[in-house]
């Protein structure tokens, strides 16, 4: 009786100590984060493992957690199933052109919305931002008809040309950066006779390089993984992006999981490599934007 009491008081004592509470909390945090972290990583491992399995191993029970023999030949086989490199090339062309268009247009627009004090600027900016809420589906059909009449369907133009006219989201992001640069700097340059374009080019661009890089990175990734616009506009198989190619692969050879996983692994590789080399930019960008690339 007394023993049990002393245990409970001791326990209460242990728990009421701040340090031990902290410890318990931290232990719990470690446990949950690690468990969920493993769940986050495992699909990647499973993809890789499947991509190196033999046909029998893929469909075996209990599942082979580690392939007995690494079947690297699945990779060249996957690459031959679809014109993988052609689709990669197409994707890179579209993504690169979009990056150029987005960076040029959005920097100019963001400059106009942040560094020049013109009447009505902030109202116009809010109106411009509000177009973010307009679903893509509303403009999708009329734009398709316009591009069709221009003869652009079946070319990269409908995917690339609009990027040269700005995107409210990236304008918003860049504007946030531009606002942090002291006005005195550009005012001083203005007094020294600098034109607006040279202030833009000589002061703003060099000072906001990290922001530009963030925008370029996010645009690239967004275009790399875009699906619906290419699906609508790229009618010729030779122009397909890798996303469209993978989807076709799935529909045609759906049961060859090891090859599908090989193709998926190769498709995921460029963004992941890019991510590992530019982690800092990503982490800074994400806290500013809150969207996925």
């Amino acid at each position: 009786m007394t023993g049990a009491q002393s245990i409970t008081t001791r326990q209460r004592g242990w728990l009421s100590s701040r340090r031990n509470q902290e410890r318990l909390k931290l232990g719990f945090a470690y446990f949950i984060c690690t468990a969920i972290g493993l769940i986050y990583i495992f699909p990647f491992y499973w993809m890789l493992a499947t991509s190196l399995k033999s046909d029998q191993e893929v469909f075996q029970w209990p599942p082979a957690w580690i392939p007995a023999v690494l079947h690297w030949e699945n990779y060249p086989a996957a690459l031959n199933y679809i014109p993988f490199w052609l689709y990669m090339k197409n994707t890179f062309i579209i993504a690169t052109l979009s990056v150029i268009g987005t960076v040029i247009s959005c920097t100019l627009i963001a400059y106009g919305f942040s560094r020049i004090r013109w009447p009505g600027r902030d109202i116009v900016f809010i109106a411009y931002l509000s177009t973010l809420m307009l679903p893509f589906q509303v403009t999708m059909i009329p734009l398709y008809i316009v591009f069709r009449n221009l003869g652009w369907v079946g070319t990269y133009l409908p995917l690339v040309v609009p990027t040269f006219f700005g995107s409210p989201f990236y304008v918003f992001l860049l504007r946030q950066f531009y606002m942090t640069i002291p006005n005195e700097l550009s005012d001083a340059a203005r007094i020294d006779g600098c034109g607006e374009l040279s202030i833009f080019w000589r002061i703003m661009i060099p000072l906001t390089k990290p922001a530009l890089f963030t925008v370029a990175l996010f645009t690239f990734l967004a275009q790399y993984s875009a699906f619906l616009p290419p699906l609508i506009y790229l009618t010729d198989q030779k122009q397909w992006t890798i996303s469209l190619g993978l989807q076709m692969f799935k529909n045609m050879y759906g049961l060859q999981w090891q090859k599908m996983m090989a193709a998926s692994t190769l498709t995921m590789l460029p963004p992941l490599v890019l991510f590992f080399f530019t982690q800092r930019t990503f982490m800074e960008g994400i806290t500013l934007t809150g969207i996925k690339g």
């Binding site: 990647f44 990734l221 993984s225 890798i242 469209l244 799935k250 996983m261 995921m268 963004p271 990503f282």
Partner: peptide
């Protein structure tokens, strides 16, 4: 963060 930069089509197939 890693999964969120994978292309959606590849993710969906996985």
């Amino acid at each position: 963060y890693m999964p969120s930069i994978t292309p959606i089509v590849a993710t969906a197939i996985l």
